[in-house]
């Protein structure tokens, strides 16, 4: 019997180790697994590498992880936002490392990890500072930079509904990085609004098949 449902947020993130690389879904405030990140904060794992599009804002989720000195390194495309106060303070003080990655390259590096590829050449950023130290080749008449996969120990993502096999459907633009991140981590943990019975999700509409998912936890809105 397969049952990926867990009862509590604490149980969902119980074994995240110090030093882990953690993918966190979301774009701005859309699709951020806020409750799972708060559970990780309570769990206490430190020295984390966090991979996410933005570096958090205000006092919640990723901003709170940074504030509480849990994040050694952040890999993201756009750390600045109106409320990214904690990230900016730690960055200025040299207390957090930043690896800046173009957004499409960030997503594709995770896809490559999930797809078992050794990397890829992309024209994105090939003529920019972000290609420094990387192999650049002219392919099909264009300069392209070699980018490596970005695998992780854990992915924390948010979806709308899940069944006990871990099949997922999402809601509007909250889908964003979730489906790709789910493929790229050794342990994929998902918070959903609602559990449904096996067979209740339209198989034509399942976005993330359960093979990519390890744990699901229900968080009532």
């Amino acid at each position: 019997m397969i049952d990926k449902r867990v009862a509590t947020l604490a149980e969902a993130v119980a074994d995240v180790a110090d030093g882990a690389t953690v993918l966190v879904g979301g774009f701005g405030n859309s699709g951020v697994p806020v409750e799972l990140v708060h559970a990780l904060l309570e769990q206490g794992a430190r020295d984390l590498t966090v991979v996410t599009n933005n570096a958090g804002s205000g006092e919640t989720d990723i901003a709170a992880l940074i504030r509480e000195h849990r994040v050694r390194r952040i890999i993201c495309s756009y750390p600045r936002s109106a409320g990214s106060v904690w990230f900016e303070q730690f960055w200025r003080a040299g207390e957090i490392e930043l690896e800046l990655v173009p957004q499409g390259t960030l997503s594709e590096r995770m896809r490559a990890a999930g797809a078992g590829l050794g990397g890829f050449f992309t024209p994105t950023g090939a003529d920019s500072l972000l290609a420094e130290g990387k192999e650049v080749r002219v392919l099909d008449g264009r300069r392209q930079v070699f980018e490596r996969p970005l695998p992780a120990d854990v992915a924390l993502i948010k979806a709308d509904r899940a069944d006990r096999w871990g099949n997922l459907v999402y809601r509007t633009a909250a889908r964003n990085f979730g489906p790709t991140m789910a493929t790229a981590a050794a342990l994929t943990v998902v918070q959903v609004r609602q559990f449904v019975e096996l067979g209740e999700l339209d198989p034509e509409a399942v976005v993330t098949p359960g093979i990519f998912v390890d744990r699901v936890v229900e968080v009532a809105p």
């Binding site: 495309s77 756009y78 750390p79 600045r80 990230f87 900016e88 960055w91 930043l98 800046l100 990655v101 173009p102 957004q103 499409g104 390259t105 994105t124 950023g125 920019s128 972000l130």
Partner: peptide, 8 residues
């Protein structure tokens, strides 16, 4: 801090 998003 630098930020690039989807510009490239």
């Amino acid at each position: 801090p630098p930020a690039v998003g989807g510009a490239m």
